[in-house]
Design a protein around this nucleic acid. Structure first.
Lengths: 192, 192
DNA sequence: TTGTAAAATGAATTTTTATTCATTTATATT
DNA sequence: AATATAAATGAATAAAAATTCATTTTACAA
C-alpha cells in the first residue's frame, strides 16, 4: 500500500502560485507546472481532477492561509491604535512575503475559473471580519472618522497591497522606521 | 479601393479590454473576441498580426489614454492642495470609468505577452511623472511629509485604484461629499 | 523477503484554440 | 456603371495545451 501525500498536494499548489505570479493565469500550462513541481504531467491528475479543480483549490488554500495570518497576535486588551497597527502590519507582511497572493486573487476573480455560485463567499468576507470590527470599535470610542467602515478598510488594504507590491518589485524591504511612516499616514488618515 | 479603418482597430481593442475585465487574459479567445466586436475571426488578423500584437497594442493604447487623462485641467497657478486634489480626482475618475484599465495592467504585467525588453518603460513612467512633480513641489514648500515621493504616490494610487474597484463592483458611485472624505484621508495622510 | 495496491511516469490521444486562405463583399476611382 | 483593390468572411487547418492510460516504480503489510 501507498498513501496519497498531503504535502505533495501543497507542493503543487505552491508551485502553481509561484508560476501564476510570474507568467499569469493566462500563461499557466499543466506541463510547465509539472516541471516546476518536479513531477510528471500525469501526476497532477492524481491530486486534482483537472486544471479547474486545481485552481479552485488554490483559491481556498490561500483564503484560509491569509485569514489565519491577519488576526495573529492581536490582543484584545491592548489600546485600539496598537491593534490597528498590528492588524495592518500583519496584512502587509502577509502580502509582502507573497505579493503572489494579491496577484493570484486579482486574476482569479476575473477568470473562467471563478463562478460566484461558489459557497466560498462567506469564507471570503470572514477573512476581513476582524478588520471591520476593529474599525467599528474605534468609531464607537470616537477615535476613528465616522465614515463607512467598508470605505476605511478598503482604503487601508488598497494602500498596503500596493506598498507590498512595490516593495517586492523594487527588491527593497520595509524597515521599522518606514513602517512607522506608513502607519502614521494610515492613522492620520483615519483618525477623527 | 478601400481603406483600413482606424476606428475598427479601436473597436477591437475596446472589445478586448471589456472581455479581459470580465473573463481575464486567461479566458480571452480570438473567436469570442470576434463575436464581441461583431466581426469574423479572420478580420482580427487584418488589423493585428496575431494575438500577441493585439494585446501589446492594447497596452500602449491604454497607457496613452491614461496619461492624457490624469493631467487634464491642472492649472499651475492654483494652490498645491487644490492641484493634488485635482490630479487624484482625475486618477480616480479615470479608474472609475474603467476599472478594466487597472485590471488589464495587473494581468498584462504578469503574462506571457509582457517582456521588459520593450521600450515602453519610458512611456510608462511618463504617465505618473506629473504626480511625482506635484509631490516634490509640496515637499519644497514644506507642506508635504518628507518621505520618498515614490512612496507617497504609490500609497495614494493604491488607495484610489482600490476605491475605484470597490465603487465599481458595489455599483455605488462616489458623491462629491464622499470625495471630500476620501481626499481628506489622503491629504491628512500626506501633509506634514 | 515477497506480494500488492496505490502512486508516478510520459508518450499518445483528445480537446481546445489560434491562424490561414480561397471566396465573397464593399467602396473608391475611372 | 464598370473595374479594381482591399476588407470581410468563416470553414478548414495547424498549433498548442489538456487529459488519458498502459506501464513502471514505490512503500507498506504480511
Amino acid at each position: 500500500m501507498r498513501a496519497k501525500d498531503e504535502n505533495k498536494e501543497i507542493l503543487i499548489l505552491e508551485s502553481a502560485l509561484k508560476m501564476i505570479a510570474r507568467i499569469g493565469l493566462a500563461g499557466l500550462k499543466m506541463s510547465d507546472l509539472a516541471k516546476e513541481a518536479h513531477l510528471a504531467t500525469g501526476t497532477l491528475y492524481i491530486y486534482f481532477r483537472d486544471k479547474e479543480e486545481l485552481i479552485r483549490k488554490l483559491y481556498l488554500y490561500l483564503l484560509r492561509k491569509s485569514s489565519a495570518n491577519v488576526i495573529q497576535g492581536i490582543l484584545t486588551n491592548e489600546p485600539l491604535k496598537k491593534r490597528v497597527n498590528k492588524i495592518c502590519y500583519n496584512f502587509l507582511i502577509y502580502n509582502l512575503e507573497g505579493p503572489e497572493y494579491g496577484a493570484f486573487f486579482e486574476q482569479y476573480y476575473r477568470s473562467p475559473f471563478f463562478h460566484e455560485t461558489e459557497s466560498v463567499l462567506a469564507e471570503e468576507t470572514a477573512v476581513m471580519q476582524p478588520f471591520y470590527e476593529l474599525i467599528i470599535e474605534g468609531q464607537r470610542q470616537g477615535i476613528i472618522k465616522e465614515t463607512e467602515p467598508e470605505l476605511l478598510v478598503t482604503l487601508i488594504c488598497g494602500m498596503l497591497e500596493t506598498m507590498a507590491k512595490v516593495s517586492f518589485y523594487s527588491q527593497k524591504s520595509i524597515s521599522d522606521k518606514e513602517w512607522e511612516t506608513i502607519f502614521s499616514i494610515i492613522w492620520d488618515g483615519i483618525k477623527s
